[in-house]
């Protein structure tokens, strides 16, 4: 199992993701430079957090034109696993791999705090080690994480079950008070209709070791590992 971690100028969560992949998970790690086009045989591509290209113009607006993003788009079209976290989610939306957009937090504040997420889909390669309706605790760290989509797109996402994570309270109740950024329908993460491209604002790579205050994020990395093992043995 080989994870590719994308590095743009301005990415800062690449090392955190890389650490989890090779030090915690024990999987193969390959950093992928944005100017390259070769995905080097990776089974899952992580587009990590940060401020790619300084987030100039809009978050993710310039990053999507990187040569590597074209290869990632083709990889996704072939069914490859693509996982955008925070800035990576914003980039996947800008590039059209996921619907909608992430806008300024309703509070106008940069929010760096723990959130509770209810897992609405546990049948995905990214969540197979979670239980459906399980509440996981994962931190956020963003100023522009308020998910927006037009009403038609939003209802399509809901009907197709493409909402994977929703901000909730500790008991799993989805409430306005548990929404840290004003996301429509408390959306914290979505998947494309095929289920192989995930975007999420919270940072699972920041809660993959007990020393960091929680290990729920590791479940997602383990899920990807597990799904790849299933594909290999199938």
């Amino acid at each position: 199992m080989k994870f590719g971690v994308v590095v743009f100028p301005g990415t800062w969560s690449d090392r955190d993701c890389g650490w989890v992949v090779d030090q915690v998970l024990g999987a193969h790690l390959q950093y992928l430079w944005h100017k390259d086009t070769d995905l080097k045989g990776c089974d899952c591509i992580i587009v990590p957090g940060g401020f790619a290209y300084g987030d100039y113009l809009r978050t993710g607006a310039i990053a999507r034109f990187a040569p590597l993003m074209e290869s990632i788009g083709e990889f996704a079209d072939r069914g490859g696993l693509v996982w955008g976290i925070c800035n990576g989610f914003q980039i996947l939306c800008e590039s059209g791999l996921l619907p909608g957009a992430l806008i300024r937090n309703a509070s106008l504040e940069y929010r760096c705090e723990w959130t509770n997420l209810v897992v609405e889909r546990a049948d995905l390669p990214f969540t197979s080690q979670c239980d459906e309706r399980e509440v996981i605790r994962v931190p956020i760290s963003h100023g522009e994480g308020s998910y927006f989509a037009d009403p038609a797109t939003l209802s399509r996402l809901e009907q197709n079950g493409q909402v994977v994570f929703r901000y909730c309270d500790v008991e799993g109740r989805v409430r306005p008070s548990s929404n840290p950024n004003g996301s429509l329908h408390n959306i914290a993460g979505i998947v494309n209709s095929r289920g192989n491209v995930l975007g999420m604002m919270p940072h699972p790579e920041r809660c993959a070791e007990a020393e960091l205050g929680g290990t729920d994020g590791l479940k997602l990395f383990r899920s990807v590992m597990h799904s790849a093992a299933q594909v290999l043995t199938a």
Partner: peptide
């Protein structure tokens, strides 16, 4: 400009 349907917290502030 943000679309009319998009919440604009900067504008409100």
């Amino acid at each position: 400009v943000p679309k009319p349907v998009v919440n604009d917290p900067q504008g409100v502030t």
